[in-house]
Amino acid sequence: MASNEVKPTAKEDENAGNWKDSIFNPRTGEFCGRTAKSWGLILLFYLVFYAFLAGMFVLTIWVMLLTLDDYVPKYRDRVPHPGLVIRPKQLDMLFNRSQPLQFNTYVQTLESYLQQYNDTEQERNEACAAGVYFEQEGEVGEQRKACQFKRSSLSRCSGLSDSTFGYAEGRPCVLLKMNRIIGLKPRGDPYVNCTAKRDNPIQMQYFPSEGRFDKMYFPYYGNKLHERYVQPVVAVKLLLNKVDYNTELTIECRIEGSDLRNNDDRDKFLGRVTFRITVKE
Results as ranks from 00 to 15, higher is better:
residue 19 W to S: 11
residue 139 E to W: 03
residue 249 L to N: 08
residue 140 V to T: 05
residue 252 E to R: 04
residue 208 P to R: 09
residue 199 D to N: 05
residue 12 E to N: 05
residue 239 L to H: 02
residue 191 Y to P: 07
residue 135 E to Q: 13
residue 158 S to T: 12
residue 123 E to Y: 06
residue 68 L to H: 03
residue 123 E to F: 10
residue 278 T to S: 08
residue 194 C to N: 02
residue 126 E to P: 01
residue 116 Q to I: 13
residue 64 M to C: 09
residue 10 A to C: 11
residue 134 F to R: 14
residue 268 K to T: 15
residue 203 Q to N: 04
residue 111 E to V: 01
residue 264 D to W: 07
residue 127 A to S: 11
residue 57 F to E: 09
residue 121 E to H: 05
residue 210 E to A: 09
residue 69 D to V: 00
residue 131 G to Q: 08
residue 113 Y to V: 07
residue 161 S to G: 15
residue 131 G to E: 07
residue 251 I to S: 00
residue 33 G to W: 11
residue 197 K to F: 04
residue 61 I to V: 12
residue 180 R to Q: 02
residue 123 E to D: 13
residue 202 I to P: 05
residue 143 Q to H: 12
residue 280 K to N: 13
residue 28 T to S: 11
residue 218 F to S: 03
residue 190 P to Q: 00
residue 13 D to R: 14
residue 173 C to H: 04
residue 110 L to Y: 08
residue 22 S to H: 12
residue 202 I to G: 01
residue 166 G to N: 06
residue 68 L to Y: 05
residue 171 R to T: 13
residue 237 K to G: 02
residue 119 D to S: 12
residue 5 E to I: 09
residue 85 V to K: 13
residue 164 T to I: 03
residue 43 L to K: 12
residue 233 V to H: 10
residue 121 E to V: 11
residue 232 P to E: 07
residue 272 R to K: 14
residue 1 M to L: 10
residue 233 V to Q: 08
residue 60 T to R: 07
residue 56 M to G: 10
residue 142 E to S: 04
residue 146 A to M: 05
residue 274 T to N: 07
residue 207 F to K: 04
residue 89 K to Y: 03
residue 166 G to L: 03
residue 117 Y to L: 07
residue 158 S to D: 12
residue 45 F to H: 14
residue 91 L to I: 00
residue 213 F to H: 10
residue 176 L to A: 09
residue 111 E to Q: 11
residue 2 A to Q: 02
residue 221 Y to V: 01
residue 46 Y to W: 15
residue 79 V to Y: 04
residue 40 G to M: 14
residue 30 E to N: 15
residue 96 N to S: 13
residue 138 G to M: 06
residue 115 Q to A: 15
residue 217 Y to A: 10
residue 23 I to T: 12
residue 8 P to G: 02
residue 105 T to F: 09
residue 5 E to K: 08
residue 19 W to D: 13
residue 24 F to K: 07
residue 138 G to F: 03
residue 103 F to D: 03
residue 56 M to Y: 06
residue 270 L to S: 13
residue 235 A to T: 04
residue 6 V to D: 00
residue 141 G to I: 06
residue 132 V to T: 15
residue 109 T to F: 03
residue 132 V to Y: 13
residue 70 D to P: 07
residue 153 S to V: 15
residue 187 R to M: 02
residue 214 D to V: 06
residue 25 N to G: 04
residue 167 Y to R: 05
residue 66 L to S: 05
residue 180 R to V: 00
residue 157 C to N: 09
residue 14 E to R: 09
residue 251 I to R: 01
residue 207 F to C: 02
residue 169 E to P: 05
residue 232 P to V: 03
residue 160 L to S: 14
residue 257 G to P: 11
residue 90 Q to F: 02
residue 233 V to L: 10
residue 20 K to L: 15
residue 267 D to A: 14
residue 28 T to W: 08
residue 183 G to Q: 02
residue 253 C to F: 11
residue 109 T to P: 04
residue 38 S to P: 01
residue 221 Y to C: 03
residue 274 T to D: 11
residue 223 N to D: 06
residue 192 V to R: 02
residue 243 V to R: 01
residue 251 I to N: 03
residue 216 M to K: 13
residue 7 K to F: 06
residue 133 Y to Q: 08
residue 190 P to N: 00
residue 198 R to F: 05
residue 183 G to D: 00
residue 81 H to R: 03
residue 48 V to L: 11
residue 120 T to H: 13
residue 255 I to H: 02
residue 164 T to C: 02
residue 256 E to G: 08
residue 235 A to H: 05
residue 168 A to Y: 05
residue 263 N to F: 07
residue 147 C to R: 12
